[in-house]
């Protein structure tokens, strides 16, 4: 797929513009993240919005790394789906752990209260 046929002995010029464009994007997003997470800046946002901002920036960065640097966007649709779809299970696991976590925390607080009495 990626093996282009070249004239023997002739090396084509590098095409690296897109690589550096993605790099600047990743760098700027990282700087914004570090800036937002500074204790003095963090307090401007409500905790929910802060988490939403940071997680969406992270998913943006992850998407660019996978699509551009790992060349997933150039692969056939079958491969893209085989790689991306299993992560639906991760969303399922996060939901499960959030629900179970509530019960575990509740249970722990009740036990601790009983031990105090």
């Amino acid at each position: 797929m990626a093996q282009h046929q070249h004239q023997p002995g002739v090396i084509p010029k590098p095409q690296t513009k897109w690589i550096w464009q993605v790099f600047w994007l990743l760098l700027i997003v990282t700087l914004i993240e570090v800036g937002l997470a500074h204790p003095d800046v963090r307090t401007f946002f409500s905790p929910l919005f802060f988490k939403l901002f940071i997680i969406s920036f992270t998913l943006l960065k992850a998407g660019f790394i996978v699509a551009a640097y790992m060349h997933l966007k150039d692969e056939v649709k079958n491969l893209i789906l085989s790689v991306v779809l299993p992560f639906v299970l991760i969303i399922y696991l996060i939901v499960l752990v959030l629900i179970e976590g509530n019960y575990v925390t509740l249970h722990r607080t009740i036990v601790e209260q009983l031990l105090v009495q």
Binding site: A2, Q3, H4, H6, I11, P12, P14, Q15, T16, I19, W20, F23, L26, L27, T30, L31, V34, A37, H38, P39, I65, Y69
Partner: peptide, 28 residues
Amino acid sequence: PMAYVGLMTFILIMSSVTMVLAVEAGHR
């Protein structure tokens, strides 16, 4: 806060860039 971790992130992203440049050179 987070300054050094930010720098580490930058180092790793930078090494990712040089890797993708190596792959691109391999295509050629």
